[in-house]
């Protein structure tokens, strides 16, 4: 029997990357985490080992509610990437979490991303499960 061609896959984060490993490990439990400095209270995002607000590295992890709003978005209609080409049109967006951090993701769960999304719209995380981690996507709240 001929082997079926493998479906193109979403590019996934690498768990071995040292600054972001704890972030991605927490996604297994569907926790969306960010760091804040114990000493100067700076919120650090994307994750790092050191604080960008002071010279320390006493960063603690906090779990975000998963709620936020769309800061801006675009609808991708052309991509040459094997996976994303199969998904056009799809929405990419900067999401402002209620806790502050701004992260890049996709907005899912809308029929026509070109017509159904607006800046400022409230969204909530929707996890896409994979073997070793989950991907935080967002849908309208």
């Amino acid at each position: 029997m001929a082997e079926q061609p493998r479906e193109p896959q979403r590019p996934l984060p690498r768990l071995k990357e040292l600054d972001t490993r704890a972030f991605w490990e927490a996604t297994r439990n569907k926790e969306l985490r960010y760091q804040r400095c114990d000493d100067c209270e700076t919120v650090v995002f994307y994750p790092r080992r050191h604080c960008t607000g002071c010279l320390g590295s006493n960063l603690s992890w906090y779990t975000a509610s998963g709620k936020g709003s769309i800061y801006s978005f675009s609808v991708v209609r052309q991509s040459y990437h094997p996976f994303f080409r199969s998904r056009v049109p799809y929405a990419v967006a900067w999401i402002d979490l209620d806790e502050g951090p701004r992260l890049l993701s996709n907005i899912v769960g809308v029929e026509d991303p070109g017509a159904d999304l607006t800046i400022g719209q409230q969204v909530v995380v929707e996890w896409e499960e994979h073997e070793e981690l989950s991907i935080p996507l967002f849908r309208p709240a």
Partner: peptide, 28 residues
């Protein structure tokens, strides 16, 4: 309109999954 494949820099590790093309970055 390339894919921005998953690198090992922490930025790439946080963003590559979303499929943001260069055009869509400017579009935002």
């Amino acid at each position: 309109v390339g894919g921005r494949g998953g690198g090992v820099h922490p930025v790439d590790n946080m963003e590559s999954f979303a499929g943001m093309t260069l055009v869509s970055n400017y579009a935002m």
